[in-house]
Design a protein around this nucleic acid. Structure first.
Lengths: 234, 234
DNA sequence: ACCTGAACACCGTTCAAGT
DNA sequence: ACCTGAACACCGTTCAAGT
C-alpha cells in the first residue's frame, strides 16, 4: 500500500482560495522542473515547497514522503518515452528503438537515472513501457517465460547504463586509473587498456543491446525448467 | 586527481599520543562496520567520526570527503571477492563463479550495491576483479575488444541486479501492481503476469548471466568496426 | 477540519580558535 | 603546524498551534 500512485491525493475544496490551489500535479510539475535545473539533490522537499509557495509540511497530503514524490516524478518523466516504434522495420529494430527512447529520456534530465535505478514504485507510464517491451519480445519469437525474464534484464541494463553515463564522475579518473594499471599487477587490464577505453558511448551501448538481445533469444527459459509458470503456451 | 586511492593519507607523528592514533585504515574499518549494522545512511561522516571517537572534521585529512570515504569502503569490501575460481571446470563456469562471488559480496552488506552502482572511483580490489574477468573472457575465446566491452556490460548487470535485490522496496507493491494490471490497459503484462513473477532470484540471475555471456560470445565487436583500438591482435 | 510555521533530529563541510 | 569544536547551511519529517 506504499505505492503513491494508489493513494488518492487530497482534494482541494470547491470554489477554493484565490491563489492557484495546491495539487499533486502542480507539485510534480514543479519538482520535475527543479530536477531538470538542479539535478536530484536540487529536488528537495523544501525547495519544491518553496517553488509552489508553501511550507514543506504542505506537500505530505499530496505526494506522501520524499520517496513518493520521487516515484511520481519518475513516472511523469517516463511519459515522454516513445513506445510507438512504428517506423522501424524489423521487430528487433523496434525493440531497440523503444529502449533507446527510454535511455534518452533518462539521460535528458540529470537525476532521472538515479531515480529509476531501484524503481521505487511502478506508475502507469512505466507500466506502458513494460507492456510494450513484453509485446515486442513475444512478437520477436520469445516464449512468454523467457520474455518475462528478459524484460527485467533489459530494463536493468539500460537503466544502469544511463546511470553510469549520467553520473559524470570525471571519467578522467577512471581513464587515469586504467592507463596507470601496471603490467605486473593487472596484466589483462594493462594489455587491454586501449580497448577498455575505446569506442564512443552510443556505439558501445548499441553493441551491448545487440549482445543481450542475441543472448536472450538463444537462451529460452523453458529449455531448462521454469517452476511456477503455469502454462507452456505456444 | 579526485581518486582517493591516489591521495596519500596524513601521517601520524611517530611516537604518537597515548590513544590509538587515527588512520585511514581505522576509519574505513569503522565505516564498514557501521555500514554492515545500519546500512548506507547509517554510515554518515558524523557517525563514523563518533565511532573512532573524534569530531567529524578530523576525518577529512584521511579520507577526503564523503564520496572518498565511500570509495574506500567499497574497495575494502571487495577484497572479499573470490577471484580464484579455480575449482570449476569450464571457463564459463569459472567466470560465473567470480561474478557470483562479486554479487554475493555486494549482497552481504545492505548498502554496498548502492555504493558500487555508479563506481565512484576504482581501487585496487576492484581492479583485481576487473583484471580477473578480462582474463577469463579472453581465455574463453573472446577477442580483446569484445572482452573489454563485455566486462563493462557484465559489471553493470551484476551490480544493478544486486542493487535491485538489496533495496527491499517491499516487492509486495510491485507484485500487487503487476497482478493488478488490467487486460485492457496492459495486455501483455496481464497475459504474462504469472511468468513475470515466477522463478527464484538465483534461478533468474543464473539465467540472465548465461544469456549475457551467450550474447557476448555471439557478438564480436570487431565484426563491425571498433574505432580506436590500436592492434587487431590474435 | 484543514493547513502550515516552527521545531526536531539529523546531515556534509568549513574555519577559526586552540594546542 | 596540526587538530578539532563549533558554526554554517542545509536536509526530511512531525506536530502543535492557528485558521
Amino acid at each position: 500500500m506504499s505505492n503513491p500512485f494508489d493513494r488518492p491525493e487530497a482534494l482541494s475544496r470547491r470554489g477554493g482560495p484565490v491563489k492557484e490551489p495546491l495539487s499533486r500535479d502542480r507539485i510534480v510539475t514543479a519538482a520535475l522542473a527543479l530536477l531538470a535545473e538542479e539535478g536530484l539533490e536540487g529536488m528537495s522537499l523544501r525547495k519544491v515547497a518553496a517553488a509552489v509557495e508553501t511550507g514543506p509540511a504542505s506537500l505530505y497530503p499530496y505526494v506522501g514522503d520524499l520517496e513518493g514524490l520521487q516515484a511520481l516524478v519518475l513516472d511523469r518523466a517516463l511519459a515522454a518515452v516513445d513506445t510507438s516504434g512504428a517506423k522501424r522495420r524489423g521487430r528487433r529494430e523496434r525493440l531497440k528503438a523503444v529502449l533507446l527512447s527510454y535511455s534518452a529520456v533518462l539521460l535528458e534530465k540529470p537525476g532521472l537515472a538515479q531515480l529509476a535505478m531501484p524503481a521505487p514504485a511502478i506508475g502507469p507510464h512505466t507500466m506502458r513501457l513494460l507492456d510494450t517491451l513484453l509485446g515486442l519480445l513475444e512478437e520477436g519469437g520469445l516464449d512468454r517465460p523467457t520474455a518475462a525474464w528478459a524484460v527485467d534484464l533489459l530494463f536493468l541494463y539500460v537503466t544502469s547504463s544511463a546511470l553510469e553515463q549520467t553520473r559524470g564522475h570525471d571519467p578522467r579518473s577512471h581513464v587515469a586509473t586504467i592507463r596507470g594499471a601496471s603490467a605486473a599487477d593487472y596484466p589483462h587490464v594493462h594489455a587491454a587498456r586501449a580497448e577498455l577505453l575505446s569506442g564512443e558511448v552510443p556505439e558501445r551501448f548499441s553493441w551491448a543491446l545487440d549482445a543481450v538481445l542475441t543472448g536472450v533469444l538463444a537462451c529460452p527459459v523453458t529449455s531448462s525448467r521454469q517452476g511456477s509458470g503455469r502454462k507452456s503456451s505456444r
